[in-house]
Amino acid sequence: MSSQRGKRSPLASVGLHATLIGASVIAVFPVLWVFLTSLKPAKYAITTDFFKDTTLDNYRYLVDKTSFFTWFGNSALIAGVTTLLGVFISATTGYAVSRFKFPGMRPLMWTLLITQMFPMAILIVPLYNLMGQLGLLNQPVGLIITYLTIAVPFCAWMMKGFFDGIPVEIDESGRVDGLNPFGTFWRLILPLAKPGLAVTAFYSFITAWGEVAYSSAFMVGDENLTLAGGLQTFVTQYTANWGPMTAASVLIAVPAAVFFLFAQKHLVAGMTAGATKG
């Protein structure tokens, strides 16, 4: 956009890079530190050395002595399904709100906003009881539904903004071709909405992947825990097993970062449309 201002003085250029390098270091360092800590023997976890007796023992412990892979599988399942469903229902909702004027639309928009204002932390007990009544405790489904309520309001809001940016003529051409609104949505609009869907997917995934409070309240027993819940077993008030904790953190961060790598190309475009028009 700003290529017209391409002539930058060397000094400004140095300043730009210096600032960005500084900011990048701050952004990356804490994560890097967790990684470095995970390579130190557990007993040196809380030291300030960058390297000390580098070892993979913490990872070995994680693999051999804990149910890490079970937790990982549970998390992957829950986050995966949450992402799929989250994307789908956010998209349909966003599309409906963007294209149709129907009774209940404004209240729905407000509901989507208000839901985000809800202090979810204090809903744990009521939701626990609700899940108990529905028989969904200790079941991935229970967590998936809960995560959807956290992720979908924002995503639907964003998708609405995104659809607003897609010319309505496309819908009309679909109608001319004899497609019903579902067909138009599915065949014509959705393919155009990829960037928006990528952001939605990313957001839903991150929400489900890193959530702690609900997963540790709803799930019990080694074989049912998610990663976030499993990690809680390492560090409590009276024990702190930082070695495996950091190793697990690294392994948790990796899929999120990979997912992010795929999504990030679309992130800017998707967010823009969503947030600008939202």
């Binding site: 960005l20 900011a23 990048s24 952004a27 990356v28 804490p30 994560v31 991150i206 992947w209 890193g210 976030a228 948790i252 961060a253 999120a256 970062a257 997912f259 992010f260 990030q264 992130l267």
Partner: peptide, 9 residues
């Protein structure tokens, strides 16, 4: 790099 904090749980 700058977006990384968002990608980590």
């Amino acid at each position: 790099m700058l977006i990384l904090p968002w990608a980590v749980p």
